[in-house]
Protein backbone atom coordinates (compact mmCIF):
# COMPACT_ATOMS: atom_id res chain seq x y z
CA UNK A 1 0.00 0.00 0.00
CA UNK A 2 1.36 3.43 -0.85
CA UNK A 3 1.51 5.37 2.43
CA UNK A 4 2.45 8.54 0.58
CA UNK A 5 -0.67 8.48 -1.53
CA UNK A 6 -2.86 7.62 1.43
CA UNK A 7 -1.58 10.54 3.50
CA UNK A 8 -1.95 12.87 0.50
CA UNK A 9 -5.52 11.70 0.12
CA UNK A 10 -6.24 12.40 3.78
CA UNK A 11 -4.92 15.94 3.33
CA UNK A 12 -7.31 16.64 0.52
CA UNK A 13 -10.15 17.30 2.93
CA UNK A 14 -8.12 20.11 4.60
CA UNK A 15 -4.73 20.99 6.13
CA UNK A 16 -3.65 18.87 9.11
CA UNK A 17 -0.88 18.47 11.63
CA UNK A 18 1.42 15.48 11.42
CA UNK A 19 0.09 13.80 14.58
CA UNK A 20 -3.42 14.40 13.32
CA UNK A 21 -2.57 12.59 10.07
CA UNK A 22 -1.11 9.63 11.97
CA UNK A 23 -4.17 9.30 14.18
CA UNK A 24 -6.62 9.42 11.30
CA UNK A 25 -4.58 6.89 9.32
CA UNK A 26 -4.42 4.46 12.25
CA UNK A 27 -8.09 4.78 12.85
CA UNK A 28 -9.12 4.11 9.30
CA UNK A 29 -6.50 1.79 7.87
CA UNK A 30 -4.01 0.93 10.58
CA UNK A 31 -5.86 -1.84 12.43
CA UNK A 32 -2.97 -4.26 12.72
CA UNK A 33 0.04 -2.00 12.23
CA UNK A 34 -0.09 1.59 13.51
CA UNK A 35 2.12 4.09 11.71
CA UNK A 36 5.38 5.28 13.33
CA UNK A 37 5.80 9.01 13.72
CA UNK A 38 9.10 8.77 11.92
CA UNK A 39 7.41 7.19 8.95
CA UNK A 40 4.94 10.11 8.77
CA UNK A 41 7.66 12.77 8.82
CA UNK A 42 9.96 11.09 6.36
CA UNK A 43 7.02 10.65 4.01
CA UNK A 44 5.87 14.25 4.44
CA UNK A 45 9.35 15.61 3.78
CA UNK A 46 9.51 13.52 0.58
CA UNK A 47 6.13 14.91 -0.50
CA UNK A 48 7.29 18.46 0.34
CA UNK A 49 10.38 17.99 -1.76
CA UNK A 50 8.24 16.82 -4.70
CA UNK A 51 5.94 19.83 -4.34
CA UNK A 52 2.89 17.74 -3.63
CA UNK A 53 2.30 19.35 -0.22
CA UNK A 54 3.23 22.63 1.35
CA UNK A 55 3.63 23.81 4.92
CA UNK A 56 0.54 25.68 5.84
CA UNK A 57 1.77 26.99 9.18
CA UNK A 58 3.84 26.20 12.24
CA UNK A 59 2.39 26.48 15.69
CA UNK A 60 4.27 28.12 18.47
CA UNK A 61 6.72 25.93 20.29
CA UNK A 62 8.38 24.67 17.15
CA UNK A 63 9.50 21.15 16.55
CA UNK A 64 8.62 19.00 13.52
CA UNK A 65 5.35 17.76 15.00
CA UNK A 66 3.96 21.27 15.04
CA UNK A 67 3.99 21.72 11.29
CA UNK A 68 0.65 21.95 9.51
CA UNK A 69 0.58 20.49 5.96
CA UNK A 70 -1.69 21.34 3.05
CA UNK A 71 -2.03 19.59 -0.31
CA UNK A 72 -0.98 21.39 -3.49
CA UNK A 73 -2.61 21.40 -6.90
CA UNK A 74 0.00 18.88 -8.08
CA UNK A 75 -0.80 16.75 -5.02
CA UNK A 76 -4.49 16.60 -5.86
CA UNK A 77 -3.66 15.55 -9.41
CA UNK A 78 -1.33 12.89 -8.08
CA UNK A 79 -4.01 11.43 -5.76
CA UNK A 80 -6.51 11.39 -8.62
CA UNK A 81 -4.05 9.59 -10.89
CA UNK A 82 -3.26 7.04 -8.19
CA UNK A 83 -6.90 6.26 -7.49
CA UNK A 84 -7.62 5.91 -11.17
CA UNK A 85 -4.78 3.42 -11.75
CA UNK A 86 -5.97 -0.20 -11.19
CA UNK A 87 -3.82 -2.25 -8.87
CA UNK A 88 -2.01 -5.13 -10.47
CA UNK A 89 -3.51 -8.33 -9.07
CA UNK A 90 -1.06 -10.30 -7.03
CA UNK A 91 0.32 -13.19 -9.01
CA UNK A 92 0.25 -15.76 -6.14
CA UNK A 93 2.61 -17.91 -8.11
CA UNK A 94 5.19 -18.38 -5.40
CA UNK A 95 3.33 -20.53 -2.90
CA UNK A 96 5.02 -21.93 0.14
CA UNK A 97 2.12 -24.27 0.65
CA UNK A 98 2.52 -25.77 -2.80
CA UNK A 99 6.19 -26.28 -2.14
CA UNK A 100 5.43 -28.01 1.14
CA UNK A 101 2.93 -30.34 -0.43
CA UNK A 102 5.30 -31.36 -3.20
CA UNK A 103 8.12 -31.90 -0.73
CA UNK A 104 5.88 -34.01 1.47
CA UNK A 105 5.01 -36.16 -1.50
CA UNK A 106 8.63 -36.45 -2.60
CA UNK A 107 9.72 -37.52 0.88
CA UNK A 108 6.74 -39.86 1.24
CA UNK A 109 5.28 -37.98 4.14
CA UNK A 110 1.51 -37.68 4.58
CA UNK A 111 0.51 -34.73 2.44
CA UNK A 112 -3.16 -35.11 3.40
CA UNK A 113 -2.25 -34.57 7.03
CA UNK A 114 -0.36 -31.50 6.06
CA UNK A 115 -3.34 -30.13 4.20
CA UNK A 116 -5.75 -30.94 7.03
CA UNK A 117 -3.48 -29.18 9.48
CA UNK A 118 -3.30 -26.19 7.20
CA UNK A 119 -7.06 -26.06 6.84
CA UNK A 120 -7.41 -26.14 10.58
CA UNK A 121 -5.02 -23.25 10.89
CA UNK A 122 -6.84 -21.27 8.21
CA UNK A 123 -10.14 -21.89 9.92
CA UNK A 124 -8.69 -20.76 13.22
CA UNK A 125 -7.79 -17.48 11.57
CA UNK A 126 -11.15 -17.21 9.96
CA UNK A 127 -12.90 -17.79 13.28
CA UNK A 128 -10.90 -14.95 14.83
CA UNK A 129 -11.76 -12.66 11.94
CA UNK A 130 -15.43 -13.66 12.06
CA UNK A 131 -15.44 -12.94 15.78
CA UNK A 132 -13.93 -9.52 15.21
CA UNK A 133 -16.40 -8.80 12.47
CA UNK A 134 -19.31 -9.49 14.76
CA UNK A 135 -18.22 -6.87 17.25
CA UNK A 136 -16.72 -4.36 14.84
CA UNK A 137 -18.10 -1.49 12.80
CA UNK A 138 -18.60 -1.46 9.04
CA UNK A 139 -14.95 -0.59 8.38
CA UNK A 140 -13.90 -3.53 10.51
CA UNK A 141 -16.29 -5.78 8.71
CA UNK A 142 -14.99 -4.80 5.29
CA UNK A 143 -11.38 -5.25 6.28
CA UNK A 144 -12.12 -8.63 7.84
CA UNK A 145 -14.17 -9.70 4.84
CA UNK A 146 -11.22 -8.92 2.60
CA UNK A 147 -9.05 -11.19 4.64
CA UNK A 148 -11.78 -13.84 4.97
CA UNK A 149 -12.29 -14.01 1.24
CA UNK A 150 -8.58 -14.52 0.69
CA UNK A 151 -8.42 -17.21 3.31
CA UNK A 152 -11.45 -18.83 1.78
CA UNK A 153 -9.71 -18.82 -1.57
CA UNK A 154 -6.75 -20.57 0.04
CA UNK A 155 -9.09 -23.11 1.58
CA UNK A 156 -10.66 -23.83 -1.75
CA UNK A 157 -7.25 -24.47 -3.15
CA UNK A 158 -6.56 -26.76 -0.20
CA UNK A 159 -9.71 -28.75 -0.89
CA UNK A 160 -8.92 -28.98 -4.57
CA UNK A 161 -5.38 -30.13 -3.87
CA UNK A 162 -6.56 -32.65 -1.31
CA UNK A 163 -8.92 -34.09 -3.88
CA UNK A 164 -6.08 -34.33 -6.42
CA UNK A 165 -3.29 -35.59 -4.20
CA UNK A 166 -3.14 -38.98 -5.86
CA UNK A 167 -2.73 -37.46 -9.30
CA UNK A 168 -0.13 -35.03 -8.03
CA UNK A 169 1.83 -37.86 -6.46
CA UNK A 170 1.98 -39.63 -9.80
CA UNK A 171 3.34 -36.50 -11.43
CA UNK A 172 5.95 -35.39 -8.91
CA UNK A 173 7.00 -38.69 -7.36
CA UNK A 174 6.33 -41.46 -9.82
Amino acid sequence: MSIGHTLLGLLESGPRHGYDLKRTFDEKFGHDRPLHYGQVYSTMSRLLKNGLVEVDGIEAGGGPERKRYAITEAGVTDVARWLATPETPEPYLQSTLYTKVVLALLTHRDAADLLDGQRSEHLRHMRALTERKRDGDLADQLICDHALFHLEADLRWLELTAARLDKLRQVVAP
Binding site: D116, L123, M126, R127, L129, T130, L148, E152, A162
Partner: peptide, 16 residues
Amino acid sequence: HEARVAAYSDREIVVR
Protein backbone atom coordinates in the same frame (compact mmCIF):
# COMPACT_ATOMS: atom_id res chain seq x y z
CA HIS B 1 -18.88 -27.04 2.57
CA GLU B 2 -18.31 -23.31 2.87
CA ALA B 3 -15.37 -22.26 4.98
CA ARG B 4 -16.88 -18.87 5.73
CA VAL B 5 -19.94 -20.56 7.21
CA ALA B 6 -17.76 -23.02 9.09
CA ALA B 7 -15.94 -20.04 10.57
CA TYR B 8 -18.97 -19.48 12.78
CA SER B 9 -18.22 -22.76 14.54
CA ASP B 10 -16.04 -23.47 17.55
CA ARG B 11 -14.30 -26.35 15.86
CA GLU B 12 -14.69 -28.47 12.79
CA ILE B 13 -14.55 -32.09 11.84
CA VAL B 14 -13.81 -33.22 8.32
CA VAL B 15 -15.55 -36.12 6.64
CA ARG B 16 -13.78 -37.73 3.76
